[in-house]
């Protein structure tokens, strides 16, 4: 590519071209940083100048301060921040992992085997549109408000996108590749394994990403309704004690953990789908 620049007569030499590209990327990063900083600054100013009532909004510094305090202090909700994070992670990861482990294979099998599709699809189609939180009352009756109950609700919210995306992904397998395998004498299961599943991977990952987002947001809803620990519970307590700093801290931590998971998934995706970029 760089060689082409030289030949194309743009009058740029390779080094200069590279430098220009790098400078551009640097500029973009700087802009993002400036964006975040000015947002925080505006927020801080509007609180400390008392443009907004401190009862309703905590400043970034207060939240940061609370963050450090909450690392060791359990008041007022009864758990340190670490305990809350752990409780939430436990619930969401249990539900999410189960959803991926059951949902993805189910979707793939439904997408590949017509008979299996006919068997499962009617049930799935009925369960699919039910909002996961509407299970909550029933779940509380069945399983109480412990880990199982919340994990079950999370499971439902993450399960559906896993199934649908895997199903669609494997359905989009290019027919000619199936023919290639057929002429090589592969059995239907081998074709499913060697052609269908790799073909579906892009969509499967999209499904898992959506599932993760769903899992995380449903978790908070579940914890706000029934829990004794967790980030959602912490936010709820923040409301009850009229502590906006606790609410904002909870929101921020949820956002940060969500972001962390997304980037972990992106790393996993680029490992599995490395052939796309190479």
């Amino acid at each position: 590519m760089n060689g082409k620049v030289k030949e194309s007569g743009l009058g740029l030499d390779v080094e200069e071209f590279k430098r220009k590209k790098q400078k551009n990327a640097y500029m973009m990063t700087m802009l993002s940083v400036v964006g975040i900083l000015s947002f925080l600054l505006l927020w801080q100013i509007s609180v400390s100048m008392e443009w907004v009532n401190q009862k309703f909004l905590a400043s970034p510094m207060q939240v940061l301060n609370l963050f450090l305090v909450k690392l060791t202090d359990a008041s007022p909700d009864g758990n340190t921040l670490g305990m809350n994070v752990l409780a939430s992670l436990q619930v969401s990861l249990t539900g999410f992992t189960l959803a991926v482990c059951i949902g993805v294979p189910l979707g793939l099998l439904m997408g590949w085997y017509r008979g299996f599709d006919s068997l499962i699809r009617p049930i799935f189609e009925v369960v699919r549109p039910i909002p996961p939180v509407s299970w909550i009352p029933l779940i509380i009756v069945w399983l109480g408000i412990g880990l199982q109950a919340k994990a079950f609700i999370v499971f439902f919210s993450a399960f559906v996108p896993c199934v649908i995306n895997s199903y669609t992904g494997i359905r989009q397998t290019v027919p000619v590749l199936i023919n290639v395998a057929k002429t090589c004498g592969a059995s239907n299961f081998t074709i499913f394994w060697k052609i269908g599943i790799p073909s579906s991977m892009t969509m499967v990952f999209t499904g898992i990403k959506v599932a993760l987002g769903n899992a995380w947001s449903t978790l908070v809803a579940a914890e706000m309704l029934a829990a004794s620990a967790g980030l959602g519970y912490m936010i709820l307590m923040g409301r009850q004690f009229a502590r906006p700093d606790i609410i904002i801290l909870g929101i921020t931590v949820i956002g940060a953990i969500g972001m962390l998971f997304s980037s972990l998934l992106n790393i996993a995706e680029s490992k599995v789908l490395g052939w796309k970029k190479v």
Binding site: V174, V176, L177, N179, V180, K182, T183, G185, I195, P198, M201, L273, W275, K276
Partner: peptide, 19 residues
């Protein structure tokens, strides 16, 4: 049916992109 003695080159560029 199909037979090992017959091979095929396809119309489309039928390569597995992940291989």
């Amino acid at each position: 049916g199909s037979d090992k003695r017959i091979g095929m080159v396809f119309q489309e560029l039928a390569l597995m992109p992940w291989k």
